[in-house]
């Protein structure tokens, strides 16, 4: 589904990604871990098409298309979804209204008719149940005055609504207490199927207790320095990132 080859990127004058290689197939969950400043969030931003990040080399192919040539909105319409680390507030725009606009724009891009109000409502009700979110929250202005947990739950609700092929969860566990973490993880798990894929960007192992990854990659200084199965995350947790840093230094 997603093939990243030797991806390099910078912000301003600062080179952050120094040659990333990654292969994600449908049905897989990949966790990208790494210490602060290793380039995890940059990778997520580059894939979603943030303007401030300049790609300086490499290739990214998504479902047979050159992802780097697509506008951010077209990447979303092709099926890439990013759950933001800091979801933004949009006053006066309810989540319902926001999702209706997004869903219909995506449908239009795919040559589908806009959903009528009844079908939309039905879809919404179904997804609300799935991710355990209350309608009163969805009627409020998007993320305005939401708690940290509510914001993240709202992100997962949007993910459920848009049914992306590839979801990128950027530090979704940050700022969540254990109950919120469980609800968010449950939502993600329910949305997993053999046709979609997930990339989880995280600093801590604890989210991976709930969302079990197929692969774990460790990012350090803009490169994937170690890859393995889910047990790698546990090893990291036990030994700390210094273990990786030392290993890299020795090599």
């Amino acid at each position: 589904m997603l093939t990243i080859k030797n991806l390099q990127a910078k912000v301003g004058e600062k080179q952050i990604l120094n040659g990333i290689d990654l292969n994600v197939k449908a049905g897989e969950v990949h966790a990208i871990m790494g210490p602060n400043g290793s380039g995890k969030s940059t990778l997520a931003s580059v894939l979603s098409g943030r303007e401030e990040y300049e790609v300086t080399g490499g290739e990214v192919e998504f479902l047979g298309k050159n992802l780097l040539e697509l506008e951010p909105e077209d990447r979303a319409r092709e099926g890439i979804f990013m759950a933001f680390q800091y979801p933004i507030e949009i006053p006066g725009v309810s989540t319902i209204n926001f999702m209706k606009t997004a869903l219909n724009e995506i449908r239009e891009y795919r040559g589908l008719q806009a959903l009528d109000a009844v079908s939309f409502l039905q879809l919404m009700k179904e997804k609300m149940k799935l991710v355990e979110i209350d309608q009163s929250l969805l009627s409020r202005s998007l993320n305005e005055g939401f708690s940290g947990g509510e914001k993240k739950r709202n992100e997962i609700f949007q993910m459920a609504m848009l049914e992306p092929k590839l979801s990128i969860l950027d530090e979704t566990d940050s700022g969540l207490d254990i109950d919120a973490l469980r609800i968010v993880a449950n939502g993600v798990n329910k949305l997993r199927n053999k046709n979609n894929a997930t990339i989880i960007v995280t600093h801590y192992q604890r989210l991976l207790d709930y969302i079990v990854p197929d692969y774990v990659h460790v990012l350090y200084k803009g490169k994937i320095v170690k890859s393995g199965g889910k047990e790698l995350a546990l090893e990291l947790e036990a030994k700390g990132y210094d273990w990786i840093k030392n290993e890299v230094a020795v090599a």
Binding site: S48, E51, I88, E105
Partner: peptide
Amino acid sequence: EDQIFYCLQRGID
């Protein structure tokens, strides 16, 4: 910019 990007990422031009 952040508000605009949030919308773009959801497929809204």
